[in-house]
Simulated assay, not measured.
Amino acid sequence: MNLSFYEAQLALVPELPLLIEQRYQMLKLIKASGPIGRRTLSSMSGYSERETRTMLDLMKEQELVHIAKEGVSTTEKGIEVLFVLHDTMEEKSGRRQLANELAERLGILKVHVVEGDSDDSPLTKKLLGMQAAKQFRSRIKGNEIVAVTGGSSVAAIPSFMQQDELPNVQFIAARGGVGEEVGLQANMIAASFAESCHATYKAFYYPDTLSEEAHAVFQHEPAAKEMLELYSRTDCVIHGVGDATKMAVLRNSSEEEQQILQDQQAKGEAFGFYFNQQGEIVHRIRTVGIQMEQLQDVPLVFTVAGGASKAEALLSYLASAPSQTILITDEGAAQNMLSLM
């Protein structure tokens, strides 16, 4: 019998894979949420306070975490351990296979799937933000124009980019401001990205209720013309995808507009465009922003959205998304998307 080193380890400590998985997930949770209190960590991880304390003591001894009055956080060594283990752990979990199958069937560049379902867990939304920040930073050169949309998934990204220095990158709103919650508007999120990366940003405010005639005039205003010129030179777009019905309600759309969306069987929304199941644009709101045809020429496109409830909306947008799209999603959305396909 010729056992490999790993097989010999398993023979001696059969619970080794489970222990590694548990501690890896705990370390990842601390990275996404830290500094975090021990009790909160116990509640979010599903382990008892005693089990949590035991794991934290072990990880502190190995200098993977730092425990202070404000909570537990990862050390540089802990972050490095997460980085080294990431690919192997993703392969073992089945998420890598799930992501590859989705990318192939959707015809897009890449898919990254994080664990969990954003519909059920606020932590999963943080993991989406952490993964999106990692992928963005690995592909950005440092002198790009980056357009970002509003929404909670995109808003979760900047907090994971606090150690990045990108002074020559300019963040801009992917379209004029609309009536979402202030903290989730594209202008505010662009500012958050810029602050985290020590970069610059350009805000763009667009009234929600312009008539068709006023909209035509507004496009010739200096601020709008400047943004249109920036959109033509955009190097990267980071955007979310919304459920068509929910977005119409969020924007206080008229009953007539909501009826149009219902009649046209709109499923998803992105950039102010509404899509049906086949990926066709069936409606759009009046605003100044990146156009769908422009998106085809943007070198880097990150689509960030998760939750099983978003599967239909994601499929409607991705049916016509540019091939250079990188999708960051979660297991809830990914599995539901495959089942719908």
Rank of each mutant, 00 (worst) to 15 (best):
S4T: 15
L12T: 08
V13G: 01
R23F: 00
Y24W: 09
Y24G: 01
M26F: 04
M26H: 01
L27M: 04
L27D: 04
A32V: 02
S33E: 14
S33R: 14
G34R: 05
R38Y: 10
R39K: 15
R39G: 08
R39T: 02
T40P: 00
S45Y: 06
S45C: 01
S48V: 11
R53F: 09
D57V: 08
L64T: 00
H66S: 15
I67Y: 02
I67W: 04
G71E: 04
S73H: 05
T75Y: 09
I79C: 05
E80D: 03
L82S: 01
H86G: 07
S93Y: 13
R95Y: 13
Q97C: 11
E101Q: 11
E104D: 14
L106F: 11
L106T: 00
L106M: 09
G107L: 02
K110Y: 14
S121V: 00
P122A: 04
L123A: 02
L123E: 04
L128E: 09
M130R: 08
A132N: 02
A133S: 11
R137A: 12
R137E: 07
R137W: 10
S138H: 08
S138G: 01
A147N: 06
T149I: 10
G150W: 13
G151S: 06
S152M: 05
F160P: 00
Q162P: 06
D164S: 14
V169L: 07
F171K: 03
A174G: 15
E181H: 09
E181W: 12
V182P: 03
G183N: 13
L184Q: 14
I189C: 09
A190Y: 07
H198L: 11
Y201G: 03
F204P: 07
Y206L: 12
P207A: 03
L210H: 05
S211R: 03
V217D: 12
F218G: 00
P222V: 05
A223L: 14
A223W: 08
M227H: 07
D235E: 11
V237E: 11
A244K: 07
K246E: 14
M247N: 08
L250H: 09
E255L: 11
I260E: 13
D263T: 12
G268Y: 13
F271V: 03
F273L: 10
Y274I: 13
Y274T: 06
Q277N: 01
Q277T: 13
Q278E: 12
I281Q: 02
R286E: 14
V288G: 07
M292G: 02
M292E: 10
Q296W: 06
Q296Y: 09
V298F: 12
P299G: 08
F302G: 06
V304G: 01
A308W: 05
S316W: 07
L318D: 04
I328F: 06
D330G: 07
E331K: 10
Q335V: 14
M337R: 15
